[in-house]
Design a protein around this nucleic acid. Structure first.
Length: 416
RNA sequence: GUGGGUGUAGCUCAGUUGGUUAGAGCACCAGGUUGUGGCCCUGGUGGCCGGGGGUUCGAGUCCCCUCAUCCACCCCA
């Protein structure tokens, strides 16, 4: 085979695309309920937007971005995540001037040059929401509740909501020092990866799946015990609101965020069906990002979710959201005269929003019936030479097998 | 980037210690029904056995290289 989709990319074929459509439709209807409006931003941006917002030290920036130079010698990057572009657009168009709280959602492809595996692709699709302009804990709870509701609504039967607070620039350094102190004597026994984590971003040691490291970190000081007054109050209120909304959550003091811009509330929704890449949805507060990108300090919160992962879980549950598209009518013809008539009839029906199709391969009637069956047509209209002469046609119900003769002129009314 | 697994028909996979023209199920096409789908029966189309090199009288099968892909590490959606 000459051309193949690139490593880590895939095609969504007609057999599957209808699942995506129904998934997207459900999501959009939920966003409407929560009063979020769609934003569509470009798929590539200046490289610097991402390096600034995501953070120089992160894996995404260090080794996963698709970066290239365009013909004007500018450094361009295919977006690895959605928030940076949304915040950029928010600032560029002064959305904050038009209304103090802006609630947005997006869908789109993201790009990261990682080694593909189950639940991980190089081009993958996310949906996400961003609420920019409020630090109120009730907003945190609304968003977390919405994420949970999406999972339920879409048909995910088992998932676990992890919740944590990762503090702010006031309290995080305090915890960091404590953690470093705690680990100082033990760093020799930790795995190589954790040694570099210890240097670069000690919090991430909590992520390590190796037993030795997990054991060593068992009694390590945890961020949640070092939250400053404001962060602690905020976290407590978020939890109160969540209880009020009857959202079940699991406090996970080890939950860490990968990207630098996160503050305070962090959450993830995981599915046990996914294997190693088990996060369906991850998000949290990023109260510092707007300022970091040149705006006035503006609190914000959001999440992103992996659409392929949702589809995977739903497929594993065999809960396939089957709403296969059917056509109303297939027109089977015999003879040239009937074909010409069918061509016109199709056009008229479509004009009336009746989905229909006909034969384009000059097949036998039997083959055309087979095609109609394959296409899930509700009814078949058979127009042969005899029928043409009489100005009639046979209408067959594909479910019951009943058929009756109708006039060629009355097709539209009967189908309506 | 590092490990391990797998590459045979459109799809899912058989293929015995190397041995003739490489198989099955599903799908597709045709016939059984000269103008009627699904079920059934019969037949048919379709394979540089991922690619290259080597061993051998002989390679889908053994060896080397390469490519692709999957899972895991890493990290994340």
């Amino acid at each position: 085979m000459k051309h193949k989709a690139l490593y880590g990319t895939h095609d969504i074929l007609p057999d599957e695309s209808f699942k995506w459509q129904s998934f997207e439709d459900k999501l959009k209807s939920i966003f409407v309920l929560y009063n979020y409006k769609e934003i569509r931003t470009p798929i590539f941006e200046e490289t610097e937007l991402f390096t600034r917002s995501i953070g120089q030290e992160t894996d995404i920036v260090q080794k996963e971005m698709y970066t290239f130079f365009d013909q004007g010698k500018r450094s361009i990057t295919l977006r690895p995540e959605g928030t940076a572009g949304v915040v950029r657009a928010y600032l560029e168009h002064n959305l904050g001037e038009k209304s103090p709280l802006v609630k947005l959602f997006y869908f789109g492809s993201m790009f990261r040059q990682e080694r593909p595996q189950k639940g991980r692709l190089r081009q993958f699709n996310q949906f996400g929401i961003e609420a920019i302009g409020s630090a109120d804990p009730s907003l945190d709870a609304e968003i977390i509740g919405m994420a949970a509701r999406i999972c339920q609504e879409v048909g995910i039967t088992e998932f676990k909501l992890h919740l944590n607070s990762i503090g702010c620039p006031v309290c995080r350094p305090v915890h960091r020092d404590k953690l470093l102190e705690f680990m100082r004597g033990k760093v020799g026994d930790v795995c190589d990866d954790c040694k570099t984590r210890f240097m670069r971003n000690p919090l991430r040691m909590f992520d390590c799946k190796k037993k030795e490291c997990a054991d060593l970190l068992k009694d390590a000081p945890v961020m949640i015990d070092f939250l400053c007054e404001e962060c602690r109050t905020h976290y407590r209120q978020v939890k109160n609101y969540l209880s009020g909304l009857e959202v079940n959550y699991f406090e996970d003091p080890r939950l860490v965020r990968g990207l630098d811009y996160y503050t305070r509330t962090a959450f993830e929704i995981k599915s046990s069906l996914l294997g190693s890449q088990d996060t369906l949805c991850g998000g949290g507060r990023y109260d510092l990002l707007v300022e970091e990108l040149g705006g006035t300090p503006t609190p914000a919160i959001g999440f992103a979710a992996g659409m392929e992962r949702f589809i995977l879980v739903l497929q594993m549950q065999k809960d396939l959201m089957i709403e296969e598209k059917k056509i109303k009518l297939f027109i089977a013809t015999l003879g040239d005269e009937a074909k010409v008539f069918a061509s016109k009839l199709c056009k008229d029906l479509r004009q009336k929003n009746i989905a229909c199709d006909t034969d384009y391969l000059q097949r036998s009637l039997k083959a055309q019936m087979k095609e109609a069956n394959r296409q899930n047509a509700e009814k078949v209209l058979i127009i042969g030479e005899e029928e043409m002469k009489k100005g009639k046609a046979v209408l067959r119900d594909m479910q019951t097998g009943e058929q009756k003769e109708i006039g060629l002129g009355e097709v539209e009314q009967i189908l309506d």
